[in-house]
Computed example of a mutant assay.
Amino acid sequence: MSAPRVLVIAGSDSGGGAGIQADIKAVTAFGCHAMTAITAITAQNTLGVSDMLVLEPALVVAQIDAVLTDIGADAIKIGMIGSPAIAEAVADRLSREDARVPLVFDPVMVATSGATLADEATIAAFERLMALATLVTPNLPELALLSPEGPEALATRARAAVLAKGGHGEGQRLIDRLVRVDGSSETWIDDRIETRHTHGTGCTLASAIAAGLAKGERLDATVAAARRYVRAAILAAPGLGRGSGPLGDPRRRALD
């Protein structure tokens, strides 16, 4: 029996907390096979990003080609893009027939540490990727840049569902809101978990959702399952580093 296949297009985090490393962990935890196309290599830890090398668009596309022409994919997740040229090249490649699968786009702009991971030109190039997406998962600062009018306007413009993540909001209640293209919506409200160990929450959530979609689950059901997983992973954080530490493995915590 073959496992559902998830292709992740994103940057590498040398500290293992976010990016491709977090994506692989989440996809694997949901019982899927993770494949990758790396867009950038970052030198980072829990304190921030100290250096970064953005790869050539042709090499990013070559990675995608290598995966799709042999193994194939049941869902795709896009995270850190790195440059407008990569955004355009990836959009061109994912417009082809063998990439017409559910696509989750996490419009990564700023790392948890505060490091900027997308300039204005790259953000402008996000439009083509959003147009290919099944779901776009901005946090509140990202949503403010992409659509000051709110998630409904973004869903209408992109013709994709939008999950507005409320982790950057104020107060002790965290509100996530899923807005579909038809205007219907669903809201999840939870108590905020007070911790500094939240590095990679956005990457983990988007990849967990992609894994659920790869298995053919409904969007609302997979969002709910992914949210539960992220909250459990925060509670299972191993407490590494002096800054924003990585999430833990809630499955391992359950065995301890």
Score class of each variant (00 low, 15 high):
residue 20 I to D: 00
residue 151 P to I: 06
residue 162 V to H: 11
residue 12 S to I: 03
residue 230 V to K: 12
residue 77 K to I: 04
residue 145 L to V: 10
residue 248 G to W: 08
residue 171 G to I: 03
residue 100 R to C: 11
residue 76 I to W: 07
residue 99 A to G: 11
residue 255 L to H: 15
residue 26 A to M: 07
residue 124 A to E: 15
residue 195 T to G: 12
residue 191 D to L: 07
residue 138 P to R: 08
residue 166 G to H: 05
residue 216 G to D: 14
residue 143 L to D: 12
residue 58 A to K: 07
residue 10 A to P: 00
residue 144 A to R: 13
residue 21 Q to P: 01
residue 31 G to E: 06
residue 45 N to K: 05
residue 97 E to K: 15
residue 217 E to K: 10
residue 143 L to Y: 12
residue 18 A to G: 08
residue 100 R to I: 05
residue 177 R to L: 13
residue 27 V to R: 01
residue 95 S to E: 09
residue 125 A to W: 06
residue 68 L to A: 04
residue 124 A to K: 15
residue 145 L to G: 09
residue 120 E to S: 13
residue 87 A to M: 06
residue 162 V to F: 10
residue 204 T to C: 14
residue 34 A to H: 09
residue 70 D to T: 10
residue 60 V to M: 10
residue 219 L to A: 04
residue 154 L to G: 07
residue 37 A to L: 06
residue 82 G to W: 03
residue 96 R to P: 00
residue 166 G to D: 05
residue 26 A to G: 05
residue 51 D to N: 15
residue 246 P to D: 09
residue 49 V to R: 12
residue 186 E to F: 02
residue 136 V to C: 12
residue 131 A to L: 07
residue 139 N to Q: 11
residue 238 P to N: 05
residue 60 V to N: 07
residue 90 V to R: 02
residue 72 G to A: 11
residue 25 K to N: 07
residue 210 A to Y: 06
residue 4 P to Q: 08
residue 41 I to Q: 09
residue 205 L to M: 14
residue 42 T to N: 08
residue 61 V to Y: 03
